[in-house]
Structure formats: C-alpha cells, structure tokens
Write a protein that binds this DNA or RNA. Sequence first.
RNA 1: GGCCCCGUAGCUCAGCUGGAUAGAGCAACGGUUUCCUAAACCGUAGGUCGCAGGUUCAAAUCCUGCCGGGGUCGCCA
Length: 586
Amino acid sequence: MNVFADVAARVRTALTDLQSEGFLPADLVLPAFDAEPPRDPSHGDVAVNAAMVLAKSAKMKPRDIAEALKAKLEAAPNIAKIDVAGPGFLNITFKSSVWHDLVRTILQQGLAYGAGGTGRGEKLNVEYVSANPTGPMHVGHCRGAVFGDALANLLVFSGFDVTREYYINDAGGQVNVLARSAFLRYREALGENIGAIPEGLYPGEYLKPVGEALAAEHGSSLLDMPEDRWLPLVRSFAIAKMMEMIKDDLAALNIRHDVFFSEASLTSNGRDQVKAAIEVLRGKGLIYEGTLEKPKGHDDAEWEDRVQTLFKSTAFGDDEDRALQKSDGSYTYFAGDVAYHYDKLQRGFRHLINVFGADHVGYIPRMKAAVAALSDGKADLDVKVVQLVRLFKAGEPYKMSKRAGTFVTLRDVVDEVGRDPVRFMMLYRKNQETLDFDFAKVTEQSKDNPVFYVQYAHARAASVLRNAVEQVAGLDVSVEALEKADLSILTDPGELDLIRRLASFPRLIEGAATAHEPHRVAFYLYDLASALHTQWTRGNDSPHLRFIQANDGVATSARLGLIFATKTVIRSGLQILGVEAPEAMR
RNA sequence: GGCCCCGUAGCUCAGCUGGAUAGAGCAACGGUUUCCUAAACCGUAGGUCGCAGGUUCAAAUCCUGCCGGGGUCGCCA
C-alpha cells in the first residue's frame, strides 16, 4: 500500500476524465507528474504538481486545471480537503482515517509492507566483490562487498529475482605468482629454509597453511616435477584455498554469493567462450585488427604502435576502441570479461549491475559498450562505483602499509568493531562519496553513532511492548490483537508524524531500488528512529502521551499498534542493510 | 591533454531523479531525568548550495563554460 501512488493513480484517472469531457484537449499526452509529501506539513499530506506540468501543452492556466482536478477529486472518500496553492499545486489533506488504516495495514502485512514494488519477478544479476583470489580480503574490498550485498537485498525486497555473483579472476598472471608463492611455502613446509620471500612473490603468512596442506597431500613428490607440471596443480590448489578464505571473510559480514564464476572456465575443457563472444561481435561488424592512437598525456618514450584485435567500443560511446588480444595472441582481461557478460546474457539476464571500486571507473564505458553490443541494446548494465574508504583512529588518519605491518584486512575490521557497525557505516553514505571510517567512533554506543541510534530505537520499541504486558493487566500485545485496536485515537501530532514517515517507506524503497541506492534506506531509518525517540521523550513532559497508559487499555493498545508498526519497518529496513535489529541493548 | 566522481552551515554529510521558506549530525551556547531504557529529547545560533551564463511557471537538482579537490587513461587485473 502506497498512499502516494494511490493519489497519483486517482489524479491520472481524473485527468483522463477531464479529457473525455472536453475540458482538456483529447489528444494531450499525459506527462509524468509527482504526488509526494510536501516539505512543509502545513501544505497537507500530498502535493501534486500535475496542473503545472500540464499547463503548457494544454495551453491553459495551471490554476484552472488545478481547480478542475480539485472538483473531480474532492468527493473521494478518504480526502478531507484539497487546496489549490502557489503556482498551481494541488495540496491534498487526507482524512485521519487514512493514517489509521495505514498503521493497520502495516500490522497486517508485517515485513512484507513496502515490498514487491518494481521488480515484478524479473531476473537481475548483481556482480560484486570479485576480489582476486590471491590473498585475504582487505578493508578496501569491504565497502563494495557491503554495498553490493545491501543493494541485492533491496532489489529482492523490491520484487526482483536477484542472483548474487562473484567473478573469480583465476586466469591471469597473478594466479601464477600465487602458485609460485605457495610452492615456496610448500618447500618451507617440507623443512627447507626458504629465507626471505623474493621480490615479486606474495610474502603473506596466509600462504603457510597452503604450503603445509600441499605437503600433506603430495609429500615431496612435487619437488621432482618441472615447473610446467607442478604449477597448474599448485595453482588450482592455492586458488581453491584462497576462495575458501575469501568466503570465510565474506561470511563474517554475512555475505553469500549464489554464483562463483571462474574466469578460467571460459577457456577450459576444450571450449573457448572468449572466442565465441568475439565471433558474435565480429558478426556485428564490431571487430577489427588495428592500432590504437597514443593517448595525449602518455609518456612519449615508451610508446610504440602495435597491431591488435580491437573492439569498436567507440560505436557505443567509449573514448577509444579496446584491445581484446595481446600481441602474443592471448586474450586481454577485457576479452574474458566480454565473454563473461555474454554468458550472463545467455543465462537470460536483462538487468545487470556491477559494483566497482573507484580505481576501475575507466573500465566502465567499454563494459557498457560490450553489453550494449552483445545484447543489441536490449539489456541494461548499471555500474555502481564505490569510492575510497579512508581509515581513521580517533580522528587520526590511519595509514596502511604492508611493510609496516599495518595492512588492514577485512577480517581485522570486522573483528575489531563488529559486523553491524561495519555494514551500517559503509552504507551511511552515497556510494560515489569518499567515506571516512573511524574505528573509535563506530564502536561508540551513543546517539553520535547512527548504528546504535537506529538499533536502540528498535530495542526501545521492543522494550515498550515487553513492559506494557507487565503494567497493563490483561493486555494482549500480539499483532493480531493490536490490529483490532481502536487506532482512531492516534491524533497527537507526534504520532501522526511517525505515521507519515511510515507511510513514505514504500516510496522510499521504490526510489532507492530504481536508483540502486541502498544508502537511502540507512538515512530513512535514522529519521524514523529519530521520530520514535522524539515521541518517546515527549512522554516525559506530558505523561498522557506515554505509550503505556496503565489504566487505559484502549489508548495503550492503539499506541502499541503504532509502536509495533514502527518496529516492523525499522526491522524491515535493517534487514535490507543486513544489520541486526536487537530486541534489547546490552 | 581526454574521461569519471566530488564541491551545500565552522566540520562530516542528506536533499526523495525539477517544486513552495535548503535539512540532519558533530562542534558552540542554553535547557530537560523521583516518569515506559537520558544509549534519549528540546531550544538558540550558523548557508551568495564553488563561480558565470542558459533552459523552465519553478534549478542545490537539467545544459554549457570556467575554478578547486580526487581518481583514471594501449597487452596489469
């Protein structure tokens, strides 16, 4: 139930009526208009701008159209008042029963309130994290991981059939480095003194267990093999171990992917899906052999022209065409990614979302070009870029350095501050905005910390429901009972403010889902929590506003209905963010 | 040099894809607890929305050009 969408629909009907009655031109194409809560509550409950939007094409005065709409809509059963205001706003005030019904609706729908809006069961693919399988996840991966996961939750809530996907970069040179590094640890595990880790290999301790596991499985047999024989063995072994580690790290944040797609699988078992994808593009006349021009800012000295297989991504808005094969004939990373996205399309996805770190922005246009070309423009790819996270400790910048041992892994962060603060804070900012993450602040349990502020609101609501049972004899606080409460006694401005905020939840969800912006949910929850805290505290000065009225079961039930509804929406929002909704604070 | 992101109160940021008088938190100042969790709340003060044009009945929001900060730029992944 979305009261604003309801109004919009009714206005649209009224407009077509006005057309058939000849008041408005019949051939007029009705444009998009808004029905939204006005910023100033004194302007009523819903402001509609349809008259102003229409004025020009109808060649009429906006206020005249507004008056006509007013006449049409005024009779509607749940509308108390309509004002034509300003340049032609239609300010609608609902009968208070609309708000009371809304509370009841939330109680009836529970966590389904606001769900299932725009998705209509369509398949949608979100690719996120995709960290290289060469070591544990570091804190830089954290934001993209949380963002992608919350976005996926949001889209599920909005009715999409979401697949969460991780692309394993297990085909490039870096996994050979991994294999050699692991091989060194294997020799170490067999008792050899390996000394310092040579430059160019991964020095991390996390490879020691991999070496030991190799020794346990193969004994010393690998030592007798030439590199071209042990390398593939060690490589796939190490990658598998790394992926286990990464999955563990992700699990610490409650992140689980549905599909792990291996880059190497594109060209294994005698198949070559990369070639197949390139041939598809060739069939569309988008592949050619050629040389790229030297970029303007490039250092002159090292540049030399090379003939390469190129994809005509400029035909789709990219700055230059992109190489698919290296000069030795092997595929570029991009070529694999093209094939991977072709695979997504083959699997029936028409909505694709990729979550990238800020350092990959330059990669976006070619990826979009590839998807546009492969799908003939029938699929949409939205690339969400998460900006850098800057670490602080009590206000002081926290420098990361592998050498100094202050390299921060994702696990370190989660262990130190906990899953909920990490998740919430990573989402309490627009994705394109750089984010400051302060270890000291996020663990603080006060209103300065939005995570606890919101969780506390939920716990407070839970506490009220618990206390009510003790304080009011014979009170039933089950949802079923609260649904039947006489909600019409909720007339206090603070109570109505709370209800209005609850009413905008479906709208909020829809907007956040269309824009792919989960942060909006976090900010909404903060505001909702604030409204609840406010109303609570008003009970200090005005005892008659307290939620629990010991000798008035009717009033208590109604207010508990509101509290329950608020608690439900907070829980629902937190669920999207992947943050716990506690029944009590410690 | 090309492209992308950012520029809103002293600080950190929202601003619902164009709406009415631009919001919140922190910091500052002043208040609220024999009372459902003060882990909270209320009030005061603080803004030429980087600058200049343009589109529109209406611009922080869209377009163009500048200025400042960050990122990125042929076979890495």
